[in-house]
């Protein structure tokens, strides 16, 4: 953690070398956050209900997925630039240092501009929580926190999977974005609206539903099942195959010329 802060400070110093760019980025981020907020507001004033969920309920769903995604992006999106790191040999350097490669990949790219996105998520959250009609007792709060944390790790797992694939292709696969950026987009609505098949896929294969849909039902009082409440914990199992895939990929790493 101390080392992470070290990396943090060197990135901060680097970015401060270009002050104008830094402040413009911040400004841009703020405007994006603001416009998203406007967008949601417009959307929710138009649509009343989706698949039996009221629009305030839906907004909570969106807030959770956005928050989880933004946290994952802030801390784990270092994998985004992973294809480039492999291409330019930066990853070779990481491998000759006595630290975990995953940690170094994450620390190699810390984007402060992502803080803007996080801010955006906080805004949506602040808007949705009081309007959702959920009784915020201890159990429900714990479930909510569980959903967000679990969601963060599921997205992190997806990023890791994406990076693992790069070991074989040496370049990124945009297909993966269906699940990452795409996950954020279709997580706006309770996943049941997409039908049984999709829901099943998102439960057992890419477990977005485990942190997004089932505990959401419990929050809204539509399900009394304890199993639904603790679903986010099972979603963490997704990290295991992702990590294994990364390990196997690492063994097959071919490096690049020279």
């Amino acid at each position: 953690m101390k080392l992470y802060l070290r990396y943090f400070s060197i990135h901060f110093k680097s970015q401060m070398q270009y002050k104008t760019s830094f402040f413009l980025t911040l400004l841009g981020q703020f405007l994006t956050a603001f416009s998203t907020f406007l967008g949601i507001w417009v959307m929710f004033t138009r649509f009343r209900a989706v698949d039996g969920f009221t629009y305030t309920e839906v907004s909570l769903c969106y807030a959770v997925v956005l928050m989880a995604f933004s946290l994952a992006e802030t801390f784990f999106r270092g994998f985004d630039t992973f294809p480039r790191m492999i291409g330019n040999g930066e990853f070779d350097r990481i491998l000759v240092r006595p630290r975990s490669p995953i940690f170094q990949v994450l620390a190699a790219k810390i984007e402060f501009s992502r803080l803007g996105r996080l801010l955006q998520a906080v805004l949506v959250f602040a808007w949705a929580i009081p309007r959702s009609g959920v009784d915020w007792n201890a159990a429900n709060l714990a479930t909510l926190v569980g959903m967000i944390l679990s969601g963060t790790f599921v997205f992190a797992g997806l990023f890791l999977l994406y990076a693992g694939i790069c070991f074989y292709t040496l370049e990124g696969l945009e297909v993966m974005n269906i699940f990452t950026d795409g996950g954020r987009e279709f997580g706006r609505y309770p996943l049941s609206v997409y039908g049984e098949g999709v829901l099943r896929f998102l439960t057992y294969i890419v477990p977005l539903a485990l942190f997004l849909y089932y505990p959401f039902l419990a929050l809204l009082g539509r399900s009394e099942s304890l199993l639904h409440r603790i679903c986010p914990a099972f979603a963490l199992l997704f990290l295991l195959p992702c990590y294994l895939f990364w390990r196997i990929g690492l063994r097959h790493y071919q490096s690049t010329g020279s």
């Binding site: 101390k2 270009y18 006595p98």
Partner: peptide
């Protein structure tokens, strides 16, 4: 290939390497 951080003084890179 370089292992130094491009935009910061060399000494900052050295200190990070020390911690790594």
């Amino acid at each position: 290939r370089s292992q130094l951080w491009w935009d910061v003084p060399v000494i900052d890179s050295f200190e990070l390497i020390r911690d790594i």
